[in-house]
């Protein structure tokens, strides 16, 4: 009996029934990342939803619409990417839709309000929050992916980065007094894309199995 045959016997003796709880091992790190980021922001910052009385719910709904779309769609793409042999083009491509919508709204906003105050007063706090929270949530997505079997590591890293950025934005947005699509494009979308780029670069190292 050669070594391959003895490996076959050894594996077969362990049975084909997969260990229970692998879905939980995927979902838990994602939820933990979301809760930790939201909890940390609430603990550190005061005055949630500033200006909602004066400007209405429009700005926060726009921000959350964008970020929650990423937070909800990225795990679906990650789930597909973690299952070898699955087609993933569509679930990954659909993640570009929120960005395209933001670009469209930005063009509209710029054509209507040519005198937008930019960059506003709290952009440094916004960037700091994105820089601190995105890697945290990105780490959660990487841990989640390690429970599966991604075979396209760059793509999986990129989507994990989008998830990280999306979670950071979702957590910080209620404390952000700034409005305007230009602000959103530069201080939210751009950091999210940078996080996705880092994920694309680091994916092969972090997700190898």
């Amino acid at each position: 009996m050669n070594k391959t045959d003895s490996i076959l016997d050894e594996l077969a003796s362990q049975g084909a029934l997969p260990a229970a709880g692998h879905s939980l091992r995927f979902i838990t790190p994602l939820l933990v990342a979301l809760v930790v980021c939201a909890g940390a922001t609430i603990a550190v910052l005061d005055d949630a939803f500033p200006g909602i009385a004066t400007t209405g719910a429009g700005p926060i709904l726009t921000k959350w619409g964008f970020s929650l779309a990423l937070v909800l769609m990225a795990p679906i793409a990650l789930w597909a990417l973690g299952r070898p042999g699955r087609r993933t083009n569509l679930s990954v491509a659909i993640l570009s839709v929120p960005f395209v919508l933001v670009l469209g709204l930005l063009a509209m906003d710029l054509s209507i309000n040519s005198q937008t105050s930019f960059p506003g007063e709290t952009w440094q706090r916004c960037l700091t929050a994105m820089a601190l929270l995105s890697p945290l949530a990105f780490g959660g997505a990487i841990i989640a992916m390690r429970a599966l079997a991604p075979t396209n590591l760059r793509r999986a890293g990129l989507v994990a980065g989008l998830f990280g950025g999306g979670v950071a934005m979702t957590a910080y947005a209620p404390f952000c007094p700034e409005r305007g699509m230009l602000y959103m494009a530069v201080f939210y979308c751009l950091p999210i894309l940078i996080m996705a780029g880092i994920g694309w670069l680091a994916g092969p190292k972090l997700l190898r199995w």
């Binding site: 076959l8 299952r83 042999g85 199995w209």
Partner: peptide, 25 residues
């Protein structure tokens, strides 16, 4: 490959074809 098929067998959804999953791994 055989060890990977075994350790990642939970990533094969019941009812889905085995071939693409196996060759992808």
């Amino acid at each position: 490959c055989l060890i990977a098929l075994h350790t990642k067998r939970h990533t094969l959804d019941p009812g889905r074809p085995v071939g693409p999953w196996m060759y992808a791994i």
